[in-house]
Each structure stands twice: as structure tokens, then as C-alpha cells.
Write a protein that binds this DNA or RNA. Sequence first.
DNA 1: CTTGGGACCTGTGAGC
DNA 2: TGCTCACAGGTCCCAA
Length: 285
Amino acid sequence: MPELPEVETVRRGLAPVMEGRTLARVILRRENLRFPFPDGFGQMLTGRKIESISRRAKYLLFHLQGGVVMIAHLGMSGRFRIFTETPPAEEKHDHVIFETNDGTTIRYNDPRRFGFMLLTTTEEMACHPLLEKLGPEPVDLNLSAAELARQLEDRLVGQLKGRKSPIKTVLLDQTVIAGLGNIYVCEALFRAGISPQKKADRIKRNSIKLLAPAIVDILQEAIKSGGSSLRDHRQPSGELGYFQHRFAVYGKEGEACPKCGPAHPVRRITQSGRSTFYCAACQKS
DNA sequence: CTTGGGACCTGTGAGC
DNA sequence: TGCTCACAGGTCCCAA
């Protein structure tokens, strides 16, 4: 279920049990996920201290001692589970097991295996093919929401030019803005009152001025919601990756529009093979 | 260069 | 109960 807020929630869950710890064991229970694990994956990680865990777009970056960086992506169905006590038997699709020096087990489970884990280094990270073309971050703890919205607005003004695809599709392009996925694109367009079918290069400046802060706000709210529900789920075998969040339109086909009521039920259409949820009355710009 | 479609996987729920 | 189909939060690759 991972878009940017989910990945950030996972990062915040993993940080307290992994940062500052040394990896005592790394067990691969199969040889590949979406990509093969790199040669020497386990050996490269074992015995190294995890200095920090950061995030770029939907990628988790585990910064280890000696400049080693593990890049992890959760794909569609990847999850981490944390066990601070003796862990139960492995479950189906538990593909990777990390054990820290202080006795915590972290398991990566991924039924569809669209996720992956790769290795890079601090020096090569900046020009890593997966990372170098990513657009700006819509969430950054060091910047205010207003400043982030300003940056996104500039980015959108520049990037929407000459784009004939629907705005929905363009916002899913990780090189335009990093981290948006199907849910939050729908939600942001709804909040900004923009039709998902509008050609990107015909979005008016005023609409961009609404869209940029809508994106920032939606994502930050989702992270807040994830954070609180993460606490609720902090069981001995806390699961990371799911949280409850109320969506305005996503998955609400046929339900009353939250803005204009039952007169205009939420519609579902398909764009580039993926579902889009929107209100035809509220989203006309 | 942009764009659209298929590919990669497994699981789940609806309908018959 | 069991089958089939549509669909699922992502991204890469290739043809046009």
C-alpha cells in the first residue's frame, strides 16, 4: 500500500529499532524480488551498524557504516514487521529477515514481489539511475508547508508545459513530483477542484496555485494519520505499512461527494489502466 | 521527446 | 464449494 505517506510511516517505525543497531544476520529466503538480490547482499550488510534510515520519494534508504546504502522499495504489497520478542514462525512471503545485535527481528513480507532491495554507496547514490531523475520532494521536515507549496508550484508551472496527457497521469510521473501515487493524486485533484481528465498543459495558473498546497497538505495529513495509527498498532509484533485514513474520493465510487452531497456521487473512470475517483461537479477546472 | 500499453506477481472479493 | 473475472497503493520497458 505504499505511497509517500506510507513509506514515511514505515521509515518512522523502523528507525527506533534499527538506527544505531548492528545487523547481526540477514537471511534471504529467495534469490530475487522484482530484481535479483545483488551478489554478496547479506555479507555486505552483516556486521554493519545502521547509522540512519531516510526516504527519497517512495524509496527507503538505509545508511550503513562505511558508506554502504541499501535502497528498498515496497512495490505494491511490501511490508515490514518488527518482532522485539522471540518471533513466531515465518509466514508465507516473508522473503527477507534482518536480525539486529540487540535481538530485534525485522521481516520483509511481499506477496506480489514488486518490491526490491539493492545496494549502493553514499558517493554513488546521487547519480543512481533509480534516484537521479526523481522530481522534488513534496514532504521535507526542514521546510514549511508554504515553502514546499511554493516549490511545487514552480515545478508544476515548468513541467506541465507541453504535456498533453491528463493531469492525473502527469502527477503520477515520479520525475515531475516524487512520491505521489494513485490515491493521493486523486485526493489532491479533488481538493484542488481540478478535473483528472484535464490536459496538463491547459491547467490554469490559478488551479496550479490550488494544486500545489493541496498536494503538500494531503500528504502531511496522511503522514500524521499514519503516525497515530502506527502507535495504535504498536503490539509486540507491530506491523508497519498499513494505517487507517479517511479518503474523500478514493475508493468511494457511488458515494455522496463530500463537498456537494448525494446529488453528485463519486465517479470511477480508468486512465492509463488505473482507477481514478472524482466528482464531476466539483472538479471542472 | 512524449505517450500508451503490456509486463511483472499474488491475493481477494464479487458473481455465477 | 468452486470457478472465473476484475482489480489492487508501483514502475520498467518497448513500440509508435
